[in-house]
Design a binder for these strands. Structure first.
Lengths: 128, 128
DNA sequence: CGATAAATTGTAATAAGTACAATATTGTAC
DNA sequence: GTACAATATTGTACTTATTACAATTTATCG
């Protein structure tokens, strides 16, 4: 894989931040540093880095796909009030067990949806 | 909530099948029985039933949102070869524990991606 | 049955993501 | 350093899931 300015920029940015940005968010942010950057490149790069196992993504209903650097397996928590997506320290522990059956697991997408206590106390909840 | 033909039809169909259809798939299927059914109604109904806690949905990268009747908490397995989405009997066991911290969990979205042994043996994998 | 509030419908819009062809850049051989 | 081939980037156009909205229809209650 070639080392291009765009790829380095995207990967560096993804390493620095912990807010699991979407492709759009990355594009908006990085355009400030590299105005010629194209949306397509962001998607391509995330896809390439994803296939290379360097980047992984999180998908939740009604949300854009959000990306992070792939490291140890962990789960995610999405706050339905503020939209922040954070890492949870543990990983789902059932993976080895389900390899027994009729399928082979390649990837674990564990995600928890709820609301931060802060958010719950501030407003009166996500929909009110 | 009003009891309409459309809602009953959608809910009944969702109860019968176990393939976790997408809104589009439901629409295509149910149009045979009710040709006047509109796409918007399918989306509206799934959203309404979702808010009522009757229906839940599963989201995986690069996939349409797929729906099922909400029952006991469980995880899902998506086969990257044939696209089938099946229920896994267990649920992620960490939910009570993470209620301790700074957030309240409302929903668990546990999903495992991989390949059915059948699919793996038949072809030479999803991309070949 | 008639009123009213809610649901359905179809069209149009939004927006995430992809395809593609032209241009530019990278890594390598010399 | 220069030339070359392979790969990456760019921008536009397209696809497609989902949402917005206004007009029409239907469910429910008296």
């Amino acid at each position: 894989m070639r080392q291009t300015h765009q790829r380095l920029l995207i990967l560096e940015n993804l390493k620095e931040r912990e807010d699991h940005p979407s492709a759009r968010a990355l594009y908006e942010e990085l355009r400030k540093e590299m105005p010629t950057l194209s949306r397509t490149t962001v998607y391509n790069t995330l896809s390439t880095l994803g296939k290379a196992g360097v980047v992984s993504c999180v998908n939740m209903p009604g949300q854009e796909t959000r990306y992070e650097c792939a490291d140890a397996r962990h789960c995610h928590f999405l706050c339905s009030s503020c939209g922040r997506l954070t890492d949870l320290e543990f990983s789902c522990g059932h993976v080895p067990q389900i390899n027994m059956d009729g399928y082979v697991v390649q990837e674990v997408v564990g995600c928890f949806k709820g609301i931060f206590r802060d958010c719950a106390e501030e407003g009166s909840g996500p929909s009110g």
